[in-house]
Design a protein around this nucleic acid. Structure first.
Length: 337
DNA sequence: AAACCATCCAACCGCCAGGCA
DNA sequence: TTGCCTGGCGGTTGGATGGTT
C-alpha cells in the first residue's frame, strides 16, 4: 500500500497555481479529518477550492476521489451481499464496464469498489468456470452457475434486443418471434432502450432461494414472475416483451413477467450531505413498463442479427445508453442489504 | 520463523466531455 | 471557434495483508 504522502510513482506533481508540492499516495487521518469537516460544513464546491480551502495539499481530483470512495457518509462498508453480487453480475451483463452506472444502482457502493470486486472476485470466477469443460458453449448447455451464465452473456444489444420481441400492437403476449425488424415498433424499442435494466425487486431479493419451479434459484431474483410494478409502474399498453426464462437461466419456467426497474441512486456527490435528494425519479421512465419474455433461444433466431444491424443503423445505442442514469429506481434504499 | 505467493483495494493516470471566457 | 479548466470515468498500479509452503 502506498504510504501517506508518498508519490506512487517517480513523478511528483506540483500545484498548478501555487507552486506548492501536492501530496500523493495514501491519505493520512489528519487529511481525512480536514476533508470530512470541510465537506460536512460547506458541501461541495469546486474541488480545487475544496482542496485549497480545506487546507489540503492535494489536488481537487484527489479530494474528490477520497470523498467519493471513502469519506462519504452514506457509504456502505463491508463485504458484498449475495444479492448485491447478483445485481452486479446482472447489471454488468447489461451495461458492461460502466461501473459508475452500476454503482448508481447499488446504494452505498462506489464504482471503484464494484470495479475491484468484479476484477478480483467475479472475474476470477468467470475465468475459472470458462476453463472448465461443458461451459465453452453457453448456448447449448444448461448453465448451472447463474453468475457465470449472466456474466458471459452478450452485450446489451445482443442479449436484450436479440432476445426480445415486442408485441407493439395488442399489448398481449403472442408467442411467435418476429421475422424482421418491421415487427418492432419504434415506440417499443425506445421504451426498451430507455428501460433496459430489469432489476431485482425487493421481494425477489428476499426470495432468491424460494423461486418455484425447476430452475436455478437465481432465476426468480432477476425475473420475478409476480407483478411487481404496481408501486411505480404503469403499463402504457404499447410495449410488451415476453420472456422465456429457461433461455436465460436454464430454468424451465416460462411465462410472462414484469420487469422492475429500480430508481437510480443519485450519486451526485459534494452536495451538502444533509440534503437528501437521492430519489430523483424520472417520470418518463416510470411510464415504461416492459414485460420481458421470449428471450427464447436467440442463438437460433435468424432475425436477431438483422435487428441489431437495423437498430444500429437507425440509432446510436451507445448514445441511448448514456441515458441509463435516468432510469427509475424506486424504494431501493429501503432494501436493507 | 521465514520466504513465497495470491489477493485485495486505495489511489493514481490518462482520456473525454462539458462549461466558460 | 478555440483553448483552458474542471469533473467524471474506466483502466491500471503497487503496497498491504493473509495464507501457504
Amino acid at each position: 500500500m502506498r504510504k501517506p504522502g508518498e508519490p506512487s510513482s517517480g513523478k511528483q506533481s506540483s500545484n498548478n497555481n501555487a507552486g506548492v508540492k501536492l501530496r500523493k499516495g495514501l491519505w493520512s487521518p489528519e487529511e481525512d479529518d480536514k476533508l470530512m469537516n470541510y465537506m460536512l460544513t460547506n458541501g461541495q464546491g469546486c474541488w480545487s477550492d475544496v482542496a485549497r480551502n480545506a487546507g489540503l495539499q492535494r489536488c481537487g481530483k484527489s479530494c474528490r476521489l477520497r470523498w467519493i470512495n471513502y469519506l462519504r457518509p452514506d457509504l456502505k462498508r463491508g463485504a458484498f451481499s449475495p444479492q448485491e453480487e447478483e445485481l452486479i453480475v446482472h447489471l454488468h451483463s447489461l451495461l458492461g464496464n460502466r461501473w459508475s452506472q452500476i454503482a448508481a444502482r447499488l446504494p452505498g457502493r462506489t464504482d471503484n469498489e464494484i470495479k475491484n470486486f468484479w476484477n478480483s472476485t467475479i472475474k476470477k470466477r468467470l475465468k475459472n468456470s470458462s476453463t472448465s469443460p461443458n461451459t465453452s458453449d453457453s448456448s447449448s448447455e444448461p448453465i448451472r452457475d447463474h453468475h457465470v451464465m449472466v456474466g458471459s452473456l452478450r452485450s446489451f444489444q445482443e442479449q436484450t434486443l436479440m432476445g426480445m420481441y415486442i408485441d407493439s400492437s395488442s399489448g398481449s403476449g403472442s408467442g411467435s418471434a418476429p421475422s424482421s425488424i418491421q415487427q418492432y415498433s419504434m415506440q417499443a424499442l425506445t421504451s426498451m432502450i430507455n428501460d433496459p435494466l430489469p432489476m431485482l425487486h425487493e421481494q425477489s431479493l428476499n426470495n432468491v432461494s424460494s423461486t418455484a419451479g425447476t430452475g436455478p434459484a437465481a432465476a426468480g431474483s432477476y425475473f420475478n414472475p409476480q407483478p411487481c410494478m404496481a408501486q411505480n409502474g404503469m403499463n402504457n399498453g404499447n410495449s410488451h416483451v415476453y420472456y422465456q426464462e429457461n433461455a436465460i437461466f436454464g430454468a424451465s419456467i416460462e411465462g410472462e413477467g414484469q420487469i422492475f426497474v429500480p430508481q437510480l441512486e443519485d450519486t451526485s456527490i459534494g452536495r451538502n450531505p444533509n440534503i437528501n435528494n437521492i430519489n430523483n425519479v424520472d417520470e418518463r421512465n416510470n411510464n415504461n413498463m416492459i414485460n420481458l419474455g421470449g428471450f427464447g433461444n436467440y442463438s437460433n433466431w435468424e432475425g436477431g442479427d438483422e435487428l441489431i444491424r437495423s437498430v444500429g443503423d437507425q440509432w446510436d445505442l451507445e448514445e441511448l445508453m448514456k441515458d441509463v442514469s435516468s432510469f427509475p429506481f424506486p424504494d431501493f434504499q429501503k432494501n436493507n442489504w
